[in-house]
Amino acid sequence: MADNVFKKAWGNDIFRIIVSLAIVGSASGMALVFVYNYASPKISINIKHETEKAIRNIFPGTEKVGKTSEKGVYKAESGKGELLGYAFVAEGNGYQGIIRLIAGVDPAITEMKGMEVLESSETPGLGAEIANPPFRNQFSGLKLDHAIEYVKNQKPQEDYQIEAITGATISSRAVVNILNKRIDEVRKLIKAKQ
C-alpha cells in the first residue's frame, strides 16, 4: 500500500525534484559535518602556531605566549615569567588588498621590537618585499615617542624613521600607517588597564 502511494508520487515531477534535492542536500550536509569535525581543531592549532612563531621571532627568548583581555593582543613572557613585551595583530589596506601583520613593543611601549607580515597580497617582487628581512628588520628598535615615518631614497636620519622600498612606496606607507594607528590603540588599552 505505502509502496503504491510512493510509486504514484514518484511519477509527479515536483515530488521527485523536492525529494531528490532534499536527499542530496542533507547527505552533503552530513558529510561536511564529519569533515569539519576532523579539520577545525587542526586549523585552529595551525593559526595559533603561526601567531606564536611570529611572536617568538619578534621576542627571542619567549617561553610563554599569554593572552590579554583584548583580542589580538598577546603578552610575550620569558621562562622566569618576566614580561618581554606586548605583541599585537594589526591590519589595514595595502596596495592590492588587506595587509595583516603582527608587531611587538616593549612593556612600556617606548620602543618597537619587530614586526612580521602574516598575510598580504602585494605585488610580488615589489610590495611583497615588506615581508622580507631588509624591510621588516628596520622596525626593530624604532623609538615610539614619535609616530613612525618613512623616507624615500635616503637613509633614515631619525630613530623613528624607516626607508620605504623603492617602487613600493604605497605598500611601505600602508605598513607605517597600520602600525601607527594600532600602536596608539594598544597604548590606550594598556594604559587604561594599569
Binding site: A31, V35, Y38
Partner: peptide, 10 residues
Amino acid sequence: TAADYFLKAN
C-alpha cells in the same frame, strides 16, 4: 569544501 578544509588542516 572537504578539499579546502583538508588543505587548511594539513
